[in-house]
């Protein structure tokens, strides 16, 4: 309260949710380190990155959408569609990766663009439009094929299996580097460009943003395009990880992405939140899975129950902060 005199007030307040998430991550890591042998190593953290690089990229796109106050349910399906298109084009006609990957990214962005355009120009709720997009992308997957398609392209598999060695015995995959570059670019865009600030303004108060002369329509269409692009890129990263294309890949990933964004402190009503929070949110989700795999005796459904509980705790923790920002 002493900080809330006049003005200097809420600079720390707005970072609090991110701080809480960060502390939770550290606490979970420490607890895991005490409980399990071999847990407290740098590589465990890096593995969380390696296993969740695709989710991180998808969650970045989701953050843009949620910051404008929208939502994108299609991301999981677009990820699956991307793996499917990539695998079928490389396996069937044998197209080279440097043609396939840009094509996949283009298709994903295109889908996002169309969804954004429908949402904006016909004023239909994003929830519904992206739900239709989810059905469409999943349906397209099954139209391409109902079975899993393995990826055997030499360049593609070689890249996927590359290990980038860091100091000591630590290593990461190229996907992690790509994901971190995406995060860095996205953070720059959100903080330092007019488009980024329009995203926040649109989420804060769309009417005002419109009356202030901001390009609200373009901003909204663009965020869905960004999300489509990120989903497609996430799909490419998932193809690296799985080395296959399958219509049942990434089922429910939209929920993971939304959960990560929420745990990262971004309000679903839009306008408030940071990309760093999303990164931490993804890491927390990943660490839960790591802990459950270390525990060994726990069944997979405990993951879901645990994530549910965690969402609950986080939402409760963040309520006072979000309340203060709103008023």
């Amino acid at each position: 309260m002493t900080a809330l005199t006049f003005g200097r007030a809420s600079v720390p307040v707005k970072y609090l949710p991110v701080l809480v998430t960060g502390c939770l991550f550290v606490a979970m890591f420490v607890a895991g380190g005490i409980r399990y042998e071999g847990f407290a190593s740098g590589q465990v953290v890096l593995n969380v990155f390696i296993d969740n690089a695709f989710l991180l990229v998808v969650a970045v796109g989701m953050t843009f959408v949620i910051l404008t106050g929208g939502i994108d349910l299609s991301v999981g399906s677009v990820v699956a569609l991307s793996t499917m298109i990539a695998a079928s084009l490389m396996e069937g006609p044998g197209w080279p990766p440097y043609v396939v990957v840009p094509l996949v990214l283009l298709i994903g962005s295109g889908l996002g663009l169309v969804m954004g355009w429908i949402i904006q120009s016909f004023d239909i709720q994003p929830f519904i439009v992206t739900l239709a997009g989810m059905f469409l992308a999943r349906g397209l997957c099954y139209t391409i094929g109902t079975d899993s398609i393995p990826i055997r392209d030499a360049t593609f598999t070689a890249f996927a299996q590359t290990r980038i060695d860091l100091f000591a015995d630590l290593w990461v995959s190229p996907s992690v580097v790509i994901a971190l570059v995406v995060v860095a670019v996205a953070a720059y865009v959100l903080h330092y460009t007019r488009f980024g600030r329009s995203v926040y303004a649109t989420g804060g108060n769309e009417q005002s943003a419109l009356l202030m002369g901001l390009p609200v329509a373009r901003t909204k269409i663009t965020v869905y395009t960004v999300s489509g692009f990120c989903s497609a890129l996430g799909g490419v990263l998932l193809s690296f990880y799985m080395l296959s294309g399958y219509g049942l890949h990434a089922v429910g990933m939209e929920l993971d992405a939304i959960a990560a964004v929420v745990i990262g402190g971004t309000l679903l009503t839009g306008g408030t939140g940071f990309l760093l929070g999303t990164v931490l949110g993804v890491l927390v989700l990943g660490l839960i899975q790591t802990i459950i795999s270390f525990e060994g005796t726990l069944n997979s459904w405990w993951t879901k129950i645990f994530i549910g509980l965690l969402l609950f705790v986080f939402i409760l923790l963040q309520r006072p902060f979000s309340g203060r920002v709103r008023r």
């Binding site: 007019r194 600030r197 108060n205 009356l211 901001l214």
Partner: peptide, 29 residues
């Protein structure tokens, strides 16, 4: 300036004044 304050409460005062014409250097705010 409309009857009701049409600004974005979640953004800083500076941004609310200059949104859409922020001073930039090399494209960066």
């Amino acid at each position: 300036v409309y009857q009701e304050v049409n600004l974005c409460p979640n953004l800083s005062v500076a941004e609310n004044i200059l949104l859409g014409r922020e001073p930039r250097r090399l494209g960066r705010i």
